[in-house]
Simulated scan of single mutants.
Amino acid sequence: MPEYQSLKVELNNQIAHIQLNRPEKLNAMNAAFWEEMVEVFDWVDATDEARVVIISGAGKHFSAGIDLALLSTAAGEMTRDIGRNAERIRRNVLRLQAAFNAVDNCRKPVIAAIQGYCIGGAIDLVSACDMRYATTDASFSIKEIDMGMAADVGTLQRLPHLIGDGMMRELAYTGRSFAGEEAAALGLVNRCFADADALLAGVTAIAEEIAGKSPLAIRGTKEMIRYSRDHSVEDGLNYIATWNAAMLQSEDMKIAMTAHMTRKKADFAD
């Protein structure tokens, strides 16, 4: 099992649990975090036993977003040359984006379990996940506007597909906080739970159900959903026809059909 500075990783019952693990800093995203997110999702993709991912935060909060010390360090690297400063900033932003692109691009479904603060960069992270669940008292905010900047690691690109353009604009322009119940009403989270224990139990039950399905069917379903988000209906239909030309010949279909007919639980290979 890989070990990291900013993350705690476990693999049980085909579920990879990735926990943001800086509770004393409200799980703020430091320099190590951005590198380790890419590494851990490379590991998830390469580990066939891992069929579903849960992302949670250690302690009372999911994450307070990017560590301000990281921004201070970046500011200290500026020179008097505007062009070189711009090139350096752009490369750094693209490097940060890669951390959450790795979540979005993961072959396996990724579920966010959110309690306490989910602020700034944490919204970017959960927007890249497949599903989100929260406690009723969770606190969300697209906080970048109050820092004098536009969110640049995925929120403004992914959130409109989750909650609609108008509400995304309101939340991004105002930076106001909203709780779990409003997040559920908006469609940002699928469901709210009373507390952190109930949240993790509920999310784990959903992950276990997904882990019991055909890994190839889950893989294809996620790929088609992601592709269709960024392409036309016609493109999406053509892609699934080509994809299933191979996948409909899988042994998983035979296993699933037999299980359905005999009313027994299917047992799929990794």
Score class of each variant (00 low, 15 high):
A64M: 10
I225Y: 10
E208D: 12
A32F: 08
H61C: 03
T258K: 14
F140T: 01
A31Y: 09
Q5S: 14
L71F: 07
W43A: 14
P215I: 02
D48V: 09
L68V: 14
I114R: 00
R91K: 14
G236F: 08
L68H: 11
A122Q: 06
D197M: 04
S177T: 07
G121P: 07
M147P: 00
I54D: 03
G180E: 04
L7G: 09
A102R: 12
A211D: 05
A196H: 06
R158E: 06
K265G: 02
V233Q: 13
K254R: 15
N101S: 11
A75G: 01
N21G: 01
D165V: 12
E3V: 12
L159A: 11
E49H: 06
I123T: 00
V153A: 15
T135Y: 01
A266V: 01
V93D: 02
K265T: 14
H17M: 06
N85P: 10
G76L: 04
Q157R: 13
A194H: 10
H17Y: 10
A183R: 05
S214M: 05
L71A: 09
G180H: 07
M257F: 10
M224S: 14
A201I: 00
K254L: 14
G65C: 09
G76P: 04
Q14K: 14
A266L: 01
L70W: 08
T79L: 01
L171F: 13
A179Y: 12
A58Q: 12
L71E: 09
N85I: 06
E49Y: 01
G187K: 02
V9K: 00
L71N: 06
R263V: 07
N92Q: 14
L11Y: 07
N85Y: 11
Q249K: 15
D104M: 04
E35V: 11
D130C: 07
G148E: 08
P160G: 10
A46Q: 14
N27R: 04
N85T: 08
F178I: 03
Y4S: 08
F140Y: 15
A179D: 11
E182T: 09
G220H: 00
R191H: 08
N27D: 06
R176M: 08
I89K: 07
K254S: 15
C118H: 03
A99E: 03
E35K: 15
Y117H: 13
L68S: 15
Y239I: 05
